[in-house]
Amino acid sequence: MSSTDQNSPASDLSAPLNKPSDADTSADNESTTHFGYKTIEKDDKISMVAGVFHSVAKQYDVMNDLMSFGIHRLWKRFTIDASGVRPGNKVLDLAGGTGDLTAKFSQLVGREGKVVLADINSSMLNVGRDKLRDKGLVQNIEYVQANAEYLPFEENTFDIVTIAFGLRNVTDKDKALRSIYSVLKPGGRLLVLEFSKPENELLNKAYDFYSFNILPKMGELVAKDGASYQYLAESIRMHPDQETLKGMMENAGFEQTSFKNLTGGVVALHKGYKF
């Protein structure tokens, strides 16, 4: 995606941090929402997010390793460790993209279990499907193109739902959380792995510098797509902080909610149960 596109997430990569004020970010109104730091019509967000992920799909895994120095693999391992997954479980890896979590879950649930890799974006799903097939993971994985806000599954279907680095891209997060709640079995758990608010001010500043000055340039250099990576950085800052997300999960019906900060709160893993 070039930075002159109509739907370009951000046109000026060297722009200083101009995060909207808290009043702007506190609540989306009826018809508008955020796309990074921009306020846009809700109806436009899906196609704009789609633009980003169609654009980054092929380079997504390489960029993930580069941008996070490989640490995303450890965050994902932590998520698997916290999932309590057992042989025979049914797992939904929502906004699963290129399928890192799906790959591990598929090996852990075994032949008796099932993993559904669901994503709104066909390009990401295709890259994921090819990657998992190349790894020989075929027998217990299903691929479904779906919007997290309207999950096309029966109520009480899954033992575990994970959404890793996906929720911040969803237009109506509350609706998505309610939809996830509905498809979880009673006793099932949701794990939300997402960028969050660093606990320490110094880390926060360093992280801001990295995200807005280095990350988009890396995106430009490696994936020839600085604008998408500028969007990713902005969308991270616009995502609700740890306590707010925990509250949103509770509003959707989740119980025994908790979160664990990883890497100083750069990322947090939220957990909640449906009873």
Partner: peptide, 20 residues
């Protein structure tokens, strides 16, 4: 240590968990 076998390969998955 969990063992996963498919017709093509056998792998061991190593985790740190108390639940499984």
């Amino acid at each position: 240590f969990t063992v996963n076998t498919t017709p093509n390969q056998t792998v061991v998955i190593v985790r740190s968990s108390t639940e499984c």
